[in-house]
Design a protein around this nucleic acid. Structure first.
Lengths: 196, 196
DNA sequence: TCTTTGCGAGTGAATACTAACTAACATAAA
DNA sequence: TTTATGTTAGTTAGTATTCACTCGCAAAGA
């Protein structure tokens, strides 16, 4: 029932950490094999190419993210804004626990020229965008959000603000408090769009 | 008085285009030399290393950006918001005219592990951030912007929203209208913070 | 005659990946 | 219970290719 073997997951995690610590240029089969304590050819027993390691890694995160967000349970008393807060809180918590993944999934610029890789990165971004878009449409419809700004523009602002917060956190060497800073940004935006 | 020779500028522009079209991995001395119609050793007559080409290229843009923004002339009737609009309009116009530069200066993830390169990218980002921060502080002080949100958080939201717009434009293959979309996002944010 | 700008022909190091082989183990026939 | 066979997961020792960069030399203009 498991999609990946233990060894495969070990390789994907090592690859993620390599990229996070030393950049994608430094992810070579050699360094990766050394990290795990295997020989280079041994890696090819588990993945047929280097590209497939990256591909699997992204697919793995995408599935995890989808499951995690969809299993968030909202309380009946939650406002639409509370639901959005819960989604981003979950996402930022995940990043905080596994900072390495951020370097990989926010890497459109790196993968932009490999179609298969950039497709998955785009899919992950689109998925997040859908959640936000749906939330905003619902909030506006319910009259919980004002309609000063259209759904699409507001989505861009929210996702943009959150991504910028993540970027700053990354540039700070993960020293800043991502969950808190992200909440501040989101609350700021919500303060401007929430009706009371 | 010119900081770079014609040939150097030619090389830097060719490098920018290479990166934009095929990614940083595809920027090699060989491909670059072919683009210009020179031999590989010839490039080393003009730059002492590949890294210096990238470094110079970023320095070149940084200087251009600083000069350009500082020479924007504001009308006496301009509001603080108009000034911010003018700054972003100038920036997005520049990106539209030279789309390739975007791939390079929005590439923290690529350069994150080369200190000299990441420093310049950070400096460029900080510069833009300073302009926005100053504008917001001024607008809030003058009472033209409300004070629902702090300067720092608001800066993150604005820069984040603009960067997200640029990213979408890039992912669309430069098909969308960056100047117009950027204006929509900025006007949206301003609508929420401007007092009337 | 220098200085600048170019070239052909290389260098060593690194890269993704492969060939050929083996020890350990599971399964199943004799 | 042996014995035969196949599979899994690893090894050492390579391959061809690509990379940034260098050497020594030539031509041309100031």
């Amino acid at each position: 029932m498991q999609q990946f073997t233990d060894r495969q997951i070990e390789i994907m995690e090592a690859a993620t950490n390599r990229i996070s610590k030393y950049g994608i240029q430094n992810l070579t089969i050699k360094t990766l094999a050394e990290d795990i304590g295997l020989s280079e050819p041994a890696l090819y027993r588990h993945f047929k190419s280097k590209n497939e390691i990256l591909l699997s890694l992204l697919e793995y995160f995408k599935t995890e993210m989808k499951n995690r967000i969809q299993s968030i349970s909202f309380k009946p008393t939650d406002t639409t804004a509370d639901e959005l807060r819960a989604i981003f809180n979950s996402q930022l918590q995940t990043f905080t626990n596994k900072p390495a993944i951020v370097s990989v999934i926010f890497a459109e610029s790196i993968f932009h020229f490999d179609e298969s890789l950039s497709n998955i990165v785009t899919e992950i971004m689109d998925m997040m965008q859908e959640y936000v878009k749906t939330n905003i449409a619902k909030g506006q419809e319910k009259g919980q959000y004002n309609k000063l700004i259209g759904v699409s523009t507001l989505t861009t602002i929210i996702i943009g603000g959150m991504r910028m917060t993540v970027l700053k956190w990354k540039l700070s060497g993960h020293k800043s408090n991502l969950v808190k800073d992200g909440k501040t940004v989101l609350d700021g935006i919500l303060k401007m769009i929430e009706n009371n």
